[in-house]
Design a binder for these strands. Structure first.
Lengths: 190, 190
DNA sequence: GTCTATAATCGGATAGAC
DNA sequence: GTCTATCCGATTATAGAC
C-alpha cells in the first residue's frame, strides 16, 4: 500500500475511533508512518483526507450490504441476514458515527457521503421489501418505505444503546424486536 | 441562576452541540460569562463539569418521558405519544449523542448516566407494554423487552438518519414504520 | 515526494493576587 | 469567589531544504 492510501486508511480508523473533531493530522501521520510534509503533499489538509476516507468507507458499506440484499432466498431471510450480519457493534457504524460530528454536519461536502449512503441503503431495502410483496412473500399491509427507514434506524440506534451500555445486549434485543414484528408480516406463515 | 448553575447549563448546551471532545473549558466559561478562576473554583475541571451536566440532562430526560409513560390512556396511545412527542430532531438526543464520544465511553463515571438512562427507559417502556398485555390492550405475542429495546433504538437511530440527511423526514419515516408495525398488535383492532 | 523548521492559536490547567 | 498571569503541550498548518 502506498503512502497516500496508508494515510487514508489511518484516517478511516481514527475517524471511526475518535470522530472528526477528535482526530488530529499528527495522529494520522503517526498511524500511517508518514511525516508532515508527506501528508501535506498528498492532501490539502484534514478535511480533504476525511472526505477521501468517508468515500471509501461509504463504498465499503454499500458493497457489504449488497452481499445480503442481492441474495436469492426468501425476502425475510435477506432482510434478517442483513440485520444479523456480524458487526463490530461496540465500535459502531463508520458512517453513522459521523452524524454526531458537528464539523461533518456543518460541511455540505463532508456530509454528502453520509446522506448518500443512507439514502441508498433505505432505497435498496425498500426495493427488497417491495419485491417481496410483489412475490407474495410479504403481506401487502407493510409500507416498504417506512419499514425500510425503521430497520435502518434500529441498526443505528442499536449501536448507540450498545455503546451506552458497553454491551451488545441492547443491540441484539432491538434487532430481535424488529425482526419479531416483521416476522408477523410474512405471508403464509403457519 | 448562580454562577455554578450557569456553568452547568453552558456545559449542557456545548456537550449537546459539540460533544465532549469538541467542548473546551474556555468555551464553557465564555458562554456562562464566567472567568477561569470562577470555573476552577466550582469544578475540578472539564470532566467534573461534564458529569454534572450529564446528570442534569439525564434527569430531565427521564422526567419528560414519564409525562407520556405515566399517562392514563390506551397503551398504544401512551407509547405513540412518547414516540411522536415534539423533539429537536436535528439536534439529536442530549444523552444518546454522547455514546459516540470516545472519552465519555472510556470513562466509567461519565458513561454511567448514559447506561442508567437507557436502562431506565427500556425498563419503563417494557413495563408499559407488559401492563398493556395484562389489560388485554396488546396481543400476547409481543415480547415487551425486545419491543421496548427496538422502540428506543428507532428513536436514537432516527436522530442519526435525520442528521445525516439534514432533514427530519427519515426520522419521521422510521417512527411511522415502527408504529405501523406495533399497531398490528393492538387487541380487538378492526 | 519527503524532511525539518517555524509559527500562531487553542486546550486544559495551576498559582497567587484581590 | 473571582481575576489575571503563566505554563506546556497539541493543533493545524506554511516554508523551504533535500
Amino acid at each position: 500500500m502506498d503512502t497516500q492510501q496508508r494515510l487514508i486508511e489511518s484516517t478511516r480508523e481514527l475517524l471511526w475511533e475518535r470522530g472528526y473533531v477528535g482526530t488530529s493530522p499528527k495522529a494520522i501521520q503517526q498511524l500511517a508512518g508518514a511525516g508532515q510534509g508527506s501528508m501535506y503533499h498528498h492532501f490539502s489538509g484534514k478535511a480533504e483526507l476525511a472526505l477521501a476516507a468517508l468515500q471509501q468507507s461509504a463504498e465499503q458499506l454499500r458493497s457489504q450490504a449488497e452481499e445480503q440484499f442481492g441474495g436469492s432466498g426468501h425476502t425475510f431471510k435477506r432482510v434478517s441476514d442483513y440485520l444479523l450480519r456480524e458487526r463490530d457493534v461496540l465500535r459502531g457504524c463508520r458512517i453513522g458515527r459521523m452524524a454526531q460530528d458537528p464539523d461533518i454536519i456543518a460541511s455540505p461536502e463532508l456530509r454528502e457521503p453520509l446522506e448518500h449512503t443512507f439514502a441508498w441503503l433505505r432505497q435498496r431495502l425498500e426495493t427488497v421489501l417491495a419485491e417481496g410483496q410483489a412475490r407474495g412473500e410479504l403481506l401487502a399491509g407493510l409500507n416498504p418505505k417506512t419499514t425500510a427507514a425503521m430497520l435502518l434506524a434500529v441498526l443505528q440506534g442499536g449501536y448507540v444503546l450498545a455503546r451506552a451500555a458497553n454491551s451488545v445486549q441492547p443491540y441484539r434485543d432491538a434487532i430481535q424486536g424488529a425482526l419479531s414484528l416483521l416476522r408477523t408480516h410474512v405471508a403464509e406463515d403457519t
